[in-house]
Amino acid sequence: MIARVLPLSLLCCALLLAACGSPAPRAPTGPGTITQAPRAVSGQAVEVVLYAMSLIDTGYRFGGKNPEAGLDCSGMVSYIFDRAAGLRIQGSAADIARRGRPVEREALRPGDLVFFNTMNRPFSHVGIYIGDDRFVHAPSTNGKVRIEQMDNRYFAQRYEAARTFFD
Rank of each mutant, 00 (worst) to 15 (best):
F81E: 10
R99T: 12
G127K: 10
S92P: 05
I80W: 09
E104M: 10
R153F: 11
E106R: 09
F81H: 13
R109C: 02
D112Y: 13
R146S: 15
L87I: 15
N117E: 14
N120V: 01
G100L: 09
P102Q: 12
R105M: 12
E160L: 09
R146L: 11
R98D: 13
R153W: 12
C73D: 07
G100W: 07
N120T: 04
Q157A: 15
I130G: 01
S78G: 12
L87R: 15
V145P: 00
Q90F: 12
G100C: 10
F115Q: 04
F135H: 02
C73L: 08
G91A: 11
G143P: 00
R158F: 06
T141Q: 14
P67F: 05
I147S: 07
L108M: 08
S78Q: 11
G131I: 01
Y79K: 12
A85M: 08
G64S: 08
Y79G: 12
P67M: 13
A94Q: 09
Q149V: 01
K144F: 11
N117K: 12
N117P: 01
R109V: 10
G143W: 03
V126I: 02
I147R: 07
L108A: 10
P122V: 06
N66H: 09
D82H: 14
I89N: 08
Y79E: 05
H125M: 07
M76H: 05
V114S: 03
T141N: 14
I128D: 00
F115W: 03
V126T: 12
I147N: 09
N120Q: 14
R98I: 01
C73P: 03
M150S: 05
S74H: 06
D72A: 05
P67N: 09
S92M: 11
D133Q: 10
Y129P: 01
Y79N: 02
V103Y: 02
G91K: 11
G86V: 11
T141Y: 14
M150Y: 08
R101W: 09
D151W: 04
R105P: 00
A84L: 07
G64W: 05
S74Q: 06
G86P: 04
R83Y: 01
V145E: 04
P110L: 01
R153E: 15
Y154K: 09
R83H: 13
G143A: 14
K144H: 14
T141S: 15
R101H: 13
R134P: 03
F135W: 06
A94D: 06
Q157L: 14
R146D: 10
E68M: 08
G111W: 09
N152E: 11
R158K: 14
F135E: 01
G64H: 08
V136R: 06
G70H: 12
R134A: 03
S124H: 06
Y79M: 05
P122L: 06
A69P: 02
A85H: 13
M119W: 05
S140W: 05
A97N: 08
I80Q: 13
T141G: 08
Q157D: 15
S140E: 10
C73A: 12
E106N: 02
G64F: 13
L108G: 07
E106C: 06
V114G: 09
S124K: 10
A84Q: 02
F155D: 10
D132Q: 15
I128W: 01
Y154V: 04
S74D: 06
G75I: 03
I96V: 11
F155H: 11
R158I: 04
A93R: 04
N142T: 13
S124F: 03
V145G: 02
K65H: 03
G86Q: 05
